[in-house]
Amino acid sequence: MIAMATGFIAAFMGIGGGLIIVPTLTIVFDVPIHEAIAASIVGVVATSISSASSYIRQKMTNIRLALFLETSTTLGALTGALLALITPASLLYFMFALFAFYVSFSQAYSARKEVEKLHVGGFKRAAPDALSRYLHLSGRYFDLRESKDIEYVVRGSIKGWLLSFLAGMGSAMLGIGGGFIKVSAMNMFMNVPFKAAVATSKFMIGFTAATGAIVYYVAGIVRPQLVAPVATGTISGAFLGTLIMNKVRVKWLKLAFSCLTLYIGYSMLKKGLLYALGVVLP
């Protein structure tokens, strides 16, 4: 049931879900942390496959944009994996916490603005940057709630690419944090509507998570019989999430995302303070 709820939230918000699965397995089911992370990362692949297939059928996913950003995410993950061997992660926790708080505030603040922007066709009025034009990154999707085709022009490609690099680095070094950065990078800096950003992020997460999952699998840490219930739950939950997401008002999605990033920011700050200064927050 918890895995199902995680899959549902992950599909709704464009995140992987590791943030919920890992503590659940370690605290509630007493699974060793390494096995929990391994099971979680395979569960994240499962949510991504499930929700990405549904979002692609709904024509919400921008495959070109996903691959463009994925070049930096996978590169960031590779760099992060190497950096993790020599650098303490505490500084990165603080950076991520700050960014999460900024995202939380910004998403809550822009919730109403995005609705207006959808109504007046504001997403297609932007000018694309050279890279976006060259790679044909702009796209469109049909918004079920607004009952209209939403066209959008992608801009700020370099900024989005760099943020995705950070997302990949964070996923590799901290095990969490990739999804919310990707959604925010697209929605806040690249002029991608929130729902299209969520769908595109879910598609990308599969590649990043599979890259990590195969490493755990080769190392023999993945326990298939632990993964079976986790993946079954996340797949079904994610599928349900994708059926509803496009029908929900974007304002509520953004407010929920704001609450989620506030929680992510707090948990990152908590870990950063614990590792760097030994301070324990409630």
Binding site: L67, T71, T74, L78, L85, F207, V215, V218, A219
Partner: peptide, 20 residues
């Protein structure tokens, strides 16, 4: 690029035996 990095990451983990 994505495929190459995904394969590179796998190869490095196999060669270096580094587990995240």
């Amino acid at each position: 690029i994505v495929l190459i990095i995904m394969m590179l990451s796998l190869t490095m983990s196999l060669v270096l035996h580094a587990t995240p």
